[in-house]
Write a protein that binds this DNA or RNA. Structure first.
Lengths: 195, 195
DNA sequence: GACATACTAGAGAGCGCTCTCTATTATTGG
DNA sequence: CCAATAATAGAGAGCGCTCTCTAGTATGTC
């Protein structure tokens, strides 16, 4: 029933991702996405009711895709390997997903979608929940292992430092150099395990 | 000769800084700056020929203001103290200049001014030169002292890590907690001096 | 083959923003 | 007090963007 789609939601989000990654959110208009996709703007509004909804969907899709590996890394039975693995995941994922990493790390949610669309319900609230829970249980594992379980320290070692380590490269649009893996590993160990 | 100014350039930049810091660059229109200052938009265009010129001026003023302390810290005769001091300066300056720090750390230049105005000449090119030169000579001092002189390491320890430590708080709009000083100090020492 | 349906296609209304332009007002030097 | 000047004041032209609306087109079902 009905004709087959020429422009799928995913294809539109892919185009949006390209445009955001190389022009920034401010230059990402429905028109520019349409041009990149060689589609009329009407076809885009057929899938996404508003610009904010489109950009919010892009954000969600990108965040989801990046979470998987982090969760797996934290599940490692050895606490220290789990910590280092989670920290390194950010770097590795950035290397293998340059465009998506640029979106996730160089801009904040509010810069993509000015207003979070009501249609998305509590999607935003639940989006980071798996990661938050994983970090919560992981913090307890750290405490049990005699490592630092200070939330500030954990966030610093597992999120902020890896983020900072890749940022410079992402801004330049190039893959992070190998050396940053070493720096992230070293910092993570020092901060959490004092080794 | 002529009437005295009601709205000085600096007052306009102050208003712009407030608006950027709490609404982001995209919401910072000439109208919103004017409203915050209770001035008509014409008075703003009397001082700044374009939005880009205004935002670029704000960027320059903010960057200049933050550089001073970094340069002083790096001039310390003891290499290790100089390194730690430079790294900590970012944190301390963020604490004492929350609004300006939000502008400098949460957004990039291109997000403020889409096109760098030609009127500003090579201001942009020379803006960071003092800091770059200081970091260059400082890297040689590190090498002479037997510390790590890898440019990636130096940038990581002196810029990226402090930035990472502070970002979370700046996003939340609060001053960075005391604990981050310790984390920055620890990381800086470990990465550069291995202690 | 005809009908319902899912989608493409793009013109244009409306809006908010930048920037221009002209009129007016305050201040200073002679 | 009187020019000359430096600045305020705000209306509105023009532009690009979002979003709407209507018409047309391909595809599956009976």
């Amino acid at each position: 029933m009905g004709r087959t789609a020429r422009f799928s939601s995913d294809a539109i989000l892919d185009a949006a991702a390209d445009v955001v990654a190389d022009g920034g959110p401010a230059r990402t208009s429905i028109g520019s996405i349409a041009a990149h996709l060689e589609a009329p703007s009407g076809s885009i509004y057929y899938r996404f009711a508003s610009r904010d909804l489109l950009m919010a969907s892009l954000w969600i899709r990108t965040a989801r895709r990046s979470q998987q590996g982090a969760l797996e890394a934290m599940a490692h039975p050895d606490v220290e390997r789990a910590a280092v693995g989670a920290a390194l995941h950010v770097v590795r994922w950035s290397r293998s997903h340059l465009t998506e990493a640029r979106i996730l790390m160089l801009y904040r949610r509010e810069q993509l979608a000015a207003e979070w669309p009501g249609e998305l319900g509590d999607e935003l609230a639940t989006l980071n929940r798996p990661l938050e829970e994983a970090r919560h249980t992981f913090t307890r594992r750290l405490a049990a292992a005699g490592a630092s379980a200070n939330p500030t320290d954990v966030a610093f070692a597992l999120v902020d430092v890896p983020f900072a380590a890749v940022r410079r490269s992402l801004v330049a649009g190039t893959a992070p150099p190998r050396r940053v893996d070493e720096l992230v590993r070293l910092t993570c160990r020092t901060v959490l395990f004092g080794t």
